[in-house]
């Protein structure tokens, strides 16, 4: 019998001050997870980017204007996970063995309740069938299945890589894996090492310690969803803007 009394809870810590907004994480994610290039009609609203880097500005005019970049993927909510609770089809599930919020596109029938429920806009609906230019389908990653139009998909911390790491450990007769063995594509591709990844349940892990740093914050913390993605910034205005944005957005929801 497999025992899991110390199941890992994977989490991410992103150093906003190191992020240059280059977009490596976005394209590495798309390569890893077989997300197709944009349909000609796709826009910033209908495109599929499991990881999306947004620009956050301090609101001052030129030349005092400063900005940072905020890479936002699924925040892997630990409690009251909004998408899990609304899915009528059990296509979304909290994976107890990794803490990853699982999206199973083959079960999804595309009602998009979860897209509306997600406070982070981290879920993407496939408005079109995936199309790769002729021959490029040969570059698809065999560790991740392709999806069709009409289903919702999102970041799962590159779960295919977790499966591969577990298989490697199994081949060596191990049941546990070290943090270094499993890194999502975004973290691997980040040229400034802004993305840290690891097991939040392990108090000695890199991410555990960074998540308790005084520079750390999470998005929409007051919703109580306990996201497992943390951000770091030394700049006060970044913290202030993140807090203010929350209140405006919540107000927006109330009025709407």
């Amino acid at each position: 019998m497999e025992t899991n009394h110390t199941s890992p809870r994977y989490g991410m810590v992103i150093d906003v001050d190191r992020c240059t907004g280059c977009g490596n994480c976005m394209v590495a994610c798309a390569v890893e997870n077989n997300v197709p290039p944009a349909d000609p009609k796709a826009t910033e609203r209908t495109g599929t980017t499991w990881m999306r880097v947004s620009k956050l500005e301090n609101g001052l005019p030129f030349p005092e204007n400063r900005s940072v970049y905020l890479p936002v993927s699924c925040q892997q909510c630990d409690h009251h996970t909004p998408c899990v609770s609304v899915c009528p089809q059990n296509a979304v599930e909290y994976d107890t063995e990794s803490g990853i919020v699982a999206q199973i596109p083959v079960r999804c029938f595309g009602c998009r309740y979860c897209v509306t429920a997600c406070p982070y806009h981290a879920r993407y609906y496939n408005w079109w069938d995936p199309v790769w230019p002729e021959g490029m389908e040969k570059t698809l990653n065999p560790d991740v299945s392709t999806r069709m139009r009409g289903v919702v998909e999102k970041c799962n911390f590159c779960h295919g890589r977790l499966q591969a790491a577990r298989a490697k450990a199994a081949a060596e007769g191990r049941r546990t894996i070290a943090d270094a063995e499993y890194v999502p594509a975004c973290g691997e591709s980040c040229p400034t090492h802004a993305i840290h990844f690891g097991n939040l349940s392990d108090p000695n892990s890199d991410v555990s310690m960074l998540s308790k740093d005084k520079r750390a914050f999470r998005l929409l913390e007051e919703l109580g969803t306990e996201p497992k993605v943390y951000f770091l910034s030394e700049q006060d205005w970044v913290h202030a803007i993140v807090k203010n944005k929350i209140s405006t957005e919540l107000k927006g929801h109330g009025n709407g």
Binding site: V27, P37, T49, V53, S54
Partner: peptide, 24 residues
């Protein structure tokens, strides 16, 4: 690669062709 659409057309992270930055 056409997948560069992720950082332009699909997210606006970078300018696409026929887009321009203008000061407010």
């Amino acid at each position: 690669s056409p997948l560069l659409s992720k950082v332009s057309q699909e997210s606006g992270l970078r300018l696409s062709l026929r887009q321009a930055y203008v000061n407010p």
